[in-house]
């Protein structure tokens, strides 16, 4: 059974000019020990999806359809209190900015033990031991000595590791990491990636890694989900998606990433920009920027197509067309 199972999730913002649907019919699941990368342009709805899972959607945003299951239990519409308990006990959350996730007024040791004590029945000494163990687990050297340090005494990378330690306090089965490395240097980024991988491998934590850095995904994730304008457009094993992207958007995205040693004067790019939520075109949301549109693309939203491969899902009329043609030829 999947640790996290999202099916047909929709998120909307009621505004005075009508309802903005920010996420539409999104389905994905993450197994234990698996890292699912979620990529997409800024504003595509990545953070919203993550926030919906942990029940931290900012009003007036709300889940308007679909279900979110954690270990089989429906957590879509839990009350705030119940959700807080689930979040504390089973889900670890890592946000982008390591500075704001820590309270500058308390030592990191105190913040860790507090969090441990609220969720587990441990003595103060036991909590301290556990906190120190967590700190060494996330790779903070000499944790006993760093225990009483304040957040500002740490560098950005170490702070982010403390945030991860905080997320691990309750032995979560799921980690939602929203751009955990974006604020960090490449060298520090590598350390965080290693840490996330280690957690998945050794503790069987299911991880949802939200980022727009394909390089990070390539190195960390097992599978990747590509979101465009609130809809899932492609999902599959990381190597498959990166090596043979099938949706035109994924292809454009992969091409526009500069690579060392490429030696091109002009980078391939996707013309135009992602439509705003209130100006999403009819049919496939990518149609204004797509180079190979069919009539159908302007009229109907393409469904996620899983016929070719259980592991690989693509939402594009072109591919359905090709399948159909193959089938007719076959018949």
């Amino acid at each position: 059974m999947a640790v996290l199972d999202i099916s047909d999730l929709s998120i909307e913002f009621p505004t005075r000019r009508g309802i903005l649907s920010a996420v539409e019919g999104l389905s994905l699941s993450i197994e234990a020990g698996e890292i699912l990368g979620v990529v997409g342009e800024s504003g595509a709805g990545k953070s919203l999806t993550g926030n919906a899972v942990v029940g931290l959607l900012e009003p007036p945003g709300r889940v308007s359809g679909g279900t979110i299951r954690l270990n089989g239990e429906d957590i879509t519409h839990l009350s705030e209190n119940a959700m807080r308990r689930v979040r504390g006990a089973q889900i670890g959350v890592i946000f982008q900015d390591p500075l704001t996730s820590l309270d500058p007024l308390y030592t990191i040791g105190r913040q860790l033990t507090q969090t441990i004590l609220t969720h587990q029945k441990l003595s103060a000494a036991g909590a301290r031991d556990k906190a120190i163990q967590l700190l060494s687990e996330v790779g903070i050297p000499a944790p006993e000595r760093r225990f009483d340090a304040y957040p500002h005494e740490f560098s950005g990378g170490m702070r982010q590791r403390v945030v991860i330690a905080l997320a691990l306090c309750c032995d979560p089965c799921l980690i939602i990491a929203d751009e955990p490395t974006t604020a960090l240097d490449v060298s520090v980024q590598a350390q965080i990636i290693d840490l996330l991988k280690k957690l998945a491998r050794e503790k069987g934590v299911a991880t949802m890694l939200v980022t727009h850095d394909m390089g990070v995904i390539a190195e960390t994730a097992d599978r990747v989900a590509v979101i465009y304008s609130g809809r899932l457009v492609e999902m599959g094993k990381v190597r498959d998606v990166i090596d043979t992207p099938r949706h035109p958007y994924t292809r454009g995205l992969m091409d526009s990433i500069p690579q060392i040693g490429q030696n091109l004067r002009t980078l391939p790019n996707i013309e135009g920009a992602m439509p705003r939520l209130n100006a999403r075109p009819e049919g496939c949301a990518f149609n204004p920027r797509c180079t190979q549109t069919l009539d159908r693309c302007f009229r109907h939203v393409p469904p996620l197509d899983t016929t070719a491969d259980e592991q690989r899902q693509v939402a594009c009329w072109l591919l359905t067309e090709q399948e159909n043609r193959k089938e007719t030829a076959y018949a």
Partner: peptide, 23 residues
């Protein structure tokens, strides 16, 4: 060399050297 080694790339090199020490 260290900087170059830490660049994540799309090939997903699995064994990047871990960097020790902080800035």
């Amino acid at each position: 060399r260290m900087l170059l080694a830490t660049v994540p790339d799309l090939q997903g090199k699995s064994n990047r050297p871990t960097i020790t020490g902080e800035v």
